[in-house]
Design a binder for these strands. Sequence first.
DNA 1: TGTCAACTGTCAGTGGCTGTCACTAGCCTC
DNA 2: GAGGCTAGTGACAGCCACTGACAGTTGACA
Lengths: 210, 210
Amino acid sequence: MNLRERKKRRTRDALLRAALELFATRGYEETTVDDIAAAVDVSQRTFFRYFAGKEETAFFVPRLAETLVVEALRTRPPDEAPLEALRRAVLESWDAINEAVVELVPIELHMRVYRVIESTPALLAAHLRRSAELEEQLACIIAEREGLDVDLDPRPRIVVALFGGVIRVTERLWSAGDDVTLDGMRQLTTTYLDQVGPALAGNWRARPSP
Amino acid sequence: MNLRERKKRRTRDALLRAALELFATRGYEETTVDDIAAAVDVSQRTFFRYFAGKEETAFFVPRLAETLVVEALRTRPPDEAPLEALRRAVLESWDAINEAVVELVPIELHMRVYRVIESTPALLAAHLRRSAELEEQLACIIAEREGLDVDLDPRPRIVVALFGGVIRVTERLWSAGDDVTLDGMRQLTTTYLDQVGPALAGNWRARPSP
DNA sequence: TGTCAACTGTCAGTGGCTGTCACTAGCCTC
DNA sequence: GAGGCTAGTGACAGCCACTGACAGTTGACA
């Protein structure tokens, strides 16, 4: 790799880390782009040459994770049922995600930023839109696996919507709780996905929960 | 109603209509707040006294609709199963929604704006966040109906997430298609909700779709 | 009719973001 | 290894959403 390229990557990583650090400590809205640029000692203009906007820094890590999940689903054995494939893809990609993230920022920082995302309206909105886009991708893959047309058969989008909903509920609970380990997340996801069946089974009071 | 209050309402409605009209014809990003204010011949500052931001005008009508859906769910007979109550609440509130919307803006304008919302990233993001908030409300109502604690039992949030997912898929299809009538929407919603069962039933290829 | 309070316009300022232009530092060729 | 080329940068000017402060205007009400 060139000196030039190395230098570029170094500034980008520095900007990224500085931004996330500031978001996590001071808050997103309270951090100006000038602050971030100043922390790395470059001009504001330079910041915008690396990131399309302030928002992009906050979602740099999540974007990585999404890529890996999509990849994981693509390589699932085609005989698995849709919901099963989704579940396994997510559960199994976490190791890869963890590995990739650590390269960029301390995992603990990422967690703090995630909480900021969930509690900042503008970021939460962006997060949900990104999730919607991811779900669209996943639906397409599912449809392809099953030999269906996403636009003709609603089922791929429906399963993915359901799945995405469960994941989002899980993420929120996970980031809010204390057990921020990988296994904790896996545990939570499995438990919640297992609740889908019961949740849809008619009147809950007829068969009380354990 | 006072002359003052009437005047106020008139400016607000004028601003709202001007904004929506501009969004629908020129696009959201292409419309500045100054444009909207100028169209009604008030200062930009006045616009911000009526709406918290440009975004708020775009979601004025949807907000109304949400209120009515929540209300409809609250008055559903308590013996209905959760998913059933949600389905009926939505299906039945459309008449009320339609009625309330027409008071403010031509329904056809609202439809055009809805398409703008779905095709403008910033608005889509906001829309999804609003939906998430609505879903949280609905989950709480469901939980209350069933005598559960939303934070302890995941099922209320899961059904609502599933339901919300289906509604969103439906909305998108509806606004994209040609049949923008109320009955068309009801039809679509019913069809899609009926697909939920099959979508979750294991491997789809084992029992091919009709 | 005069007083008060609500509503509005003007102005100045902040923060995100973009275009432009000149300049410097790394790269590549001769 | 000197020179030109170009990617990367900083400085500056400007747009747009949004906010605070202050002054002027207009409806309400005694």
